[in-house]
Amino acid sequence: MVEIATRKQPNRYPWENKKQSGIYRFFDGLEKGKLLSTKCKRCHHFNWPPMIVCTKCLSDQVLWRELPKGGQIIAYSLSYIGNSQHPELICTIELSNGLRMLGRIIGSKYKDLSYGLKVTRKNVGLVEGRPFWTYELVGRSKSKEGKTVTQSR
């Protein structure tokens, strides 16, 4: 079975360091509970993941903007990797502006989910220095877990 998780590369220069990385704001945003990426000032293309040069027009004039919070479920699974007793709900989300990502779903059971259901982003943060976010179904009662996740980096 594939269990390719990751470990932090000890010698990697920090992507989250302002002096060493043009996308430090992405990590800064995550720490503050916001999922940011770059929108091109010239052609308005929303780059995802964040890019300091627009992938459509090569402009280096980009604005940091929060990604839409809402989207819909494209696919969802129970992942037993690393926790065979308590599988976690993972999903593919398409945001309202068409951008796509993997993530986790909280506050719902597997049997409650279906393709196309509307979701909204809940927790955003860094876990062991890695981007992390969760979604929950729109219209669910407020999840107790709904707070910014920030752990040691």
């Binding site: 990751t6 990502m101 876990v127 981007p131 992390f132 976010w133």
Partner: peptide, 9 residues
């Protein structure tokens, strides 16, 4: 980064 920490293939 688009995997949101869901890194298992």
């Amino acid at each position: 980064f688009t995997r949101g920490g869901v890194l298992m293939p």
